[in-house]
Amino acid sequence: MAPSLTRRQVLGLGGLALGGAAFSTWRQAQAAPLAAAGAAGLGLPPRGDRRLVLISDLNASYGSTSYIPEVGQGITLIPSLRPDLVMCAGDMVAGQKASLGTSQLQAMWAGFDRQVLRPLRRAGLPFVPAMGNHDASSSLVGSRYAFERERQEASRYWRRQQGDLGLTFADASGFPFFYSVLQGGLFLLVLDASSAQIPAEQLRWAERSLKSAGARGARRRLVMGHLPLLGVSQGRDTAGNVLAQSLELRQLLERADVEAYISGHQHAYYPGRLGQLDLIQLGALGSGPRRLLGQSGAPFQTLTVLDYDWSKGLRRDSTVNMRTRQLLDPGQLPPRLSDSRGRTQLRRSTATGG
């Protein structure tokens, strides 16, 4: 006769049974009320001619193959918002650690595929990824990538997905690290800003791409990369956490009449304006949200929605506080932010003409 199980052992086995598909179903059930509320429940403005959802920094601790509840809730919410496109500004997995082996890196991307990309693609939503420092850091040691194995695994994973992302590529020669897309009147250029240094040849490629007929004929031009032009959050306003060529890149984008640069990495949302360029600095959807510079309030996860009204020439930005499930009031954000080098960006209106 088999020995009888204690109550604790039974509960333990029950916990194991909750794994896999059962756990996924449970998490979806937890997120269902938020998804059911959708745009109306959140108080979003009416859907425009084009709607984009922007997310960033999904990852948890090093090597993790799962995500915190806010990520699951956000991914479940997104299809109910009926976007035309989902853009992610990087840090989709939890790499940038030399001790992570190939099998663990593959497991991390499999977890992302199962919990993030597949649900969005099953909903028919095109997906634009940018590589973050935890996905495929471009930092160098001498002339070699410090995280070459992570870049190889990221490239292997995304090249398998390339034909199934729902995207119309303008130039996929550098995919998934840098590339461009023409989608629904938008020209979207993605940079490999996974470290502070963007190679000069990639900046030249970006300038050529933004001068192309496809870019010039688009209604709007957006550029996305992981690291920002300026620091906005506490603990990240340092060299290595912002782009070293921020002035050069900003001037390049202004010359090309780019509407906005979308970035992540700082883990704090701020709608900025620098010169003639909008800065859409996304908060983290995943672990480790941060406070804005000079602020003392509790940090929170975010998800951002862009709505375009072509007839009025307007873009409206709406950002959801995923802790409270309410829209963020931009008026609660500081009217300007100055970084440690004295560079100041103004808080812009989240209803933008052009």
Score class of each variant (00 low, 15 high):
residue 9 Q to I: 03
residue 16 L to R: 11
residue 18 L to V: 03
residue 22 A to N: 00
residue 25 T to N: 05
residue 26 W to K: 06
residue 27 R to E: 12
residue 32 A to V: 00
residue 32 A to S: 10
residue 41 G to W: 05
residue 58 L to D: 03
residue 61 S to F: 08
residue 63 G to F: 00
residue 65 T to S: 07
residue 71 V to S: 05
residue 78 I to C: 01
residue 80 S to A: 14
residue 82 R to N: 05
residue 87 M to Q: 04
residue 91 D to T: 07
residue 93 V to T: 14
residue 98 A to F: 08
residue 98 A to K: 05
residue 102 T to R: 12
residue 106 Q to S: 13
residue 108 M to S: 14
residue 108 M to Q: 15
residue 108 M to V: 14
residue 109 W to L: 12
residue 117 L to N: 09
residue 119 P to C: 11
residue 126 P to G: 13
residue 127 F to S: 09
residue 128 V to Q: 08
residue 130 A to R: 05
residue 136 A to V: 15
residue 137 S to V: 05
residue 138 S to C: 02
residue 139 S to W: 03
residue 140 L to T: 05
residue 140 L to N: 01
residue 142 G to P: 02
residue 144 R to Q: 15
residue 152 Q to F: 10
residue 152 Q to S: 13
residue 152 Q to E: 12
residue 157 Y to R: 01
residue 157 Y to H: 00
residue 158 W to T: 01
residue 160 R to P: 06
residue 163 G to S: 14
residue 167 L to Y: 10
residue 168 T to L: 07
residue 169 F to I: 05
residue 169 F to L: 05
residue 179 Y to M: 03
residue 179 Y to L: 04
residue 181 V to G: 09
residue 184 G to M: 06
residue 184 G to W: 03
residue 188 L to I: 15
residue 188 L to D: 03
residue 189 L to N: 04
residue 190 V to Y: 08
residue 190 V to E: 08
residue 195 S to N: 07
residue 203 L to G: 02
residue 211 K to E: 01
residue 220 R to T: 08
residue 220 R to I: 00
residue 221 R to Y: 09
residue 224 M to C: 10
residue 225 G to A: 14
residue 226 H to E: 04
residue 226 H to N: 11
residue 228 P to Y: 10
residue 232 V to Y: 03
residue 233 S to Y: 02
residue 234 Q to E: 12
residue 236 R to H: 02
residue 238 T to C: 11
residue 245 Q to C: 09
residue 245 Q to T: 12
residue 250 R to P: 05
residue 252 L to W: 11
residue 254 E to A: 15
residue 262 I to N: 01
residue 262 I to Q: 00
residue 265 H to N: 07
residue 267 H to A: 07
residue 269 Y to K: 09
residue 269 Y to V: 09
residue 272 G to D: 13
residue 274 L to M: 14
residue 283 G to F: 09
residue 293 L to A: 14
residue 297 G to F: 09
residue 303 L to Q: 00
residue 303 L to H: 01
residue 314 L to V: 13
residue 314 L to Q: 13
residue 316 R to W: 03
residue 321 N to G: 08
residue 323 R to M: 04
residue 333 L to N: 04
residue 336 R to H: 12
residue 340 S to Q: 04
residue 341 R to M: 02
residue 346 L to V: 12
residue 348 R to Q: 11
